[in-house]
Amino acid sequence: TFYNFIMGFQNDNTPFGILAEHVSEDKAFPRLEERHQVIRAYVMSNYTDHQLIETTNRAISLYMANL
């Protein structure tokens, strides 16, 4: 899942690491979701930090390219 992918960046001092920290603390994050459209919609609806949203979009693109 995307959640498992992004958790691989925990403790990294990178934008993906920052995203992983936010996702791990977000109890409502769709952890079992595999459809990138649902993940993107969730982030757009629940996150207000523009940098975090952009990082999510980049992470989703990388995740999709590696499926």
Rank of each mutant, 00 (worst) to 15 (best):
L67I: 13
P15S: 10
L19M: 05
G8R: 12
Y3T: 01
R31F: 07
R40A: 11
L19T: 00
H50A: 14
R58A: 13
H50P: 15
M64E: 11
R58T: 10
N13T: 09
D49L: 05
R58G: 06
N66W: 15
S24K: 15
I18S: 09
Q51E: 14
L52R: 01
T48Y: 09
F29I: 04
N11S: 09
M64R: 09
D49R: 04
N11A: 07
E21S: 14
Y3C: 02
S61P: 05
D26V: 06
D12E: 13
T55H: 04
I6T: 00
M64C: 09
T48G: 08
N46D: 02
E54A: 10
D12F: 10
F29A: 01
P15E: 14
G17K: 06
Q10C: 12
Q10I: 15
S61A: 14
N11E: 06
N4H: 11
R40L: 15
I39T: 01
E54P: 03
F16R: 00
R40S: 09
T56Y: 13
F5G: 00
Y47C: 06
M7E: 02
V43A: 07
N46H: 13
M44I: 11
L19F: 04
Q51L: 14
H50M: 13
Y47G: 02
G8A: 12
A59E: 02
A28E: 13
F2L: 05
E34S: 15
F2Y: 03
A59F: 04
L52S: 02
G8K: 14
A20M: 04
F9E: 00
S24H: 13
R35P: 04
T1R: 05
S45T: 12
E25A: 14
N66I: 13
I53D: 03
A41K: 10
Q51P: 05
Q51C: 09
L52D: 04
Y42Q: 00
A20W: 07
S24I: 09
R31P: 02
N13K: 12
M7C: 06
I6R: 01
R35N: 15
R35S: 14
T55L: 12
P30R: 03
P30I: 04
E25V: 10
E21K: 15
S61Q: 15
G8T: 14
H36P: 15
I53L: 10
F9T: 00
T55K: 03
N66H: 14
